[in-house]
Amino acid sequence: MINFVGRGRDAIDYIVDEGSFEENLCGGETLDPEWAESAVVGSATLSGETVTVIANDAGIANPRFRMVYAGLMGLEEGFKMAHAVYLTIKADKDKPLAEKRPIILVVDTPGMSPGKVEEIIGIYKSTGAYQLASAEARRAGHPIVAMVVGRAISGGFLCHGLQADRILALSDEFGTMVHVMPLVGIARVTKINIMLLEELSEGNPVFASGVSHFYNLGGVDEIIESVADMRPRVKAQIDEIRRLKAAGEYDKVGPWSRLMSGIKRGGRKTSEKVIELMEEEFNLALSSWLGGEDDGFTP
């Protein structure tokens, strides 16, 4: 069976129109091909329409930062991906909603680079910048679809995937991995017996690895069972996202919509209670907080 783990770049051709990907061409600008090469960004077409593609190539290291290897994303990688998103927003700034070009994220990353230089400069800004850029593009009307083809792990998944309108994932048989930490790691850090964790994970999606657990929590919108289905399903999701955004239904796409799916699928019952109770308490406290309609807010 085909496996895309570590091969994010190869997966691109299975998702967009074959042979259409032009690396480093972003919203009409051409990026330096030697800049953070494992962060693969560029343009392609899908059913003939121009899309921005952002992927991660685990086979390439960054000669300028030694902690960027094997797919780990570093300072430059996150900022480059953010830059690609901002170029996309800029290119379509004056276009109507229906013509905002889609952004396709091809997800295979084991996480962010853990290094001293990364901490000194502040790698959290690189990951944060990419997420804010993606959230802005999504809210500006660009359909963003993440296709998880390999590893979608912890901070790597947060910045490259979890800000999408919709997240699709190849099923577990393709070697797909979605998690924060494998169970052995959780057991070691929390000092909870691994056997107990394994047993609990069968009935509770809240901590264990795997695409189906994330599906039950709403974190994955759709599981894709075959490679051939990726292209038509990504396209179908783009159409659906456009329809929802045209209707102004921005809470039916993106992270909040996944929280709602998680509640529907029974994986986030505690969140459901929190939302309900906080709404209630907020409404009760509102008039003493902001003052009544007539007197306005008086500190």
Binding site: G128, L162, V180, I186, V206
Partner: peptide
């Protein structure tokens, strides 16, 4: 992320970032 509830904790981060935006 709280590892005992790692997946839900991770998703909450993405929801907070979206709310920030």
């Amino acid at each position: 992320v709280r590892l005992q509830e790692a997946n839900a904790g991770l998703l909450a981060h993405s929801e907070v970032m979206d709310a920030f935006q």
